[in-house]
Design a protein around this nucleic acid. Structure first.
Lengths: 156, 156
DNA sequence: CCTGAAAAGTGAACGCC
DNA sequence: GGCGTTCACTTTTCAGG
């Protein structure tokens, strides 16, 4: 796996800021011709560093006004794959992670309103491998952003 | 504020799946001409339903291999704005929410490795308004996706 | 990196419920 | 009038040289 140089990082930043900007526009920032930028973007996609391009939607405007984080505690020893398989069919699950600590997983839920959230929680708790859940309702979003292209080393 | 009809929903889905697909390509799916699609996309952007377009980056490939969720407990009565203001300068904070329950906020952190995470947590705990934190390290990502364009009503 | 043909973006004019 | 379509024009893409 080859290096991602500083120009690649700048290209990624540009695309994170606006996935629809043209290669020429990116080229102006990184001082490269449009075809050169395209070749680098294609390579970043090939290598999986860029996974794709997506639209950022206002969940609230689309009617998903309520969200919650749910600690999930499972019965016995369950594999991550088993949890994933049971969570995937629930449309309200927007993210899920296995975690260290007391809980087995953290599930990020999105619902239309509190009633819909309650309904989603009920269906989540009905999953056979799930023992109990602890939910935390989100009151407001303070911040949401992509990580910088390179973690700047602060420790040295 | 006017309705988002089923064609708008389909357009949003298409753009979430691939933000770089052409208007003509989207038009083929929704059975509309390219200019008609562009007009709808512009309107969705104007209304804030579409907030923009971004690249999906593989955080791991870029060296952000470790993440954690941190419950933040503040001293006294702190406004969301004050919390936001203190979290914004920390590059490792990718998301933050005020929440109901015991904690005041949940912070989603991304770091290069455990050492970097420890360092970021130290700087987070050093924030003057923060009393104490409870962190949960992510072991694996099970699922990460956008909500569907329309919350299908399950309750009625 | 440059060049040129093909494709996409974009605004205007026009027609249809 | 809102919304879609076609047309004309510009910009961008993208495959060789």
């Amino acid at each position: 796996m080859l290096r991602v140089d500083s120009i690649d990082q700048l290209i990624v930043s540009q695309l994170v800021a606006d996935a629809r900007s043209s290669y020429a526009e990116i080229g102006k920032v990184v001082r490269l011709s449009a075809p050169a930028v395209k070749r680098r973007v294609d390579r970043l996609l090939d290598r999986g560093i860029l996974r794709g391009f997506t639209a950022v939607v206002d969940a609230e405007a689309l009617g998903w006004g309520t969200e919650a984080f749910v600690e999930v505690h499972c019965r016995g020893n369950i594999s991550p794959g088993q949890i994933r398989q049971r969570l995937e069919p629930l449309a309200e699950v927007v993210a899920a992670y296995t975690v260290s600590g007391a809980a087995d997983a953290i599930v990020h839920l999105r619902a239309a309103d509190i009633h819909h959230l309650e309904d989603a929680l009920e269906r989540l708790r009905a999953v056979d491998i799930i023992d109990r859940t602890v939910s935390t309702v989100v009151l407001s979003t303070l911040l949401e952003r992509s990580p910088a292209p390179e973690p700047h080393d602060t420790a040295h």
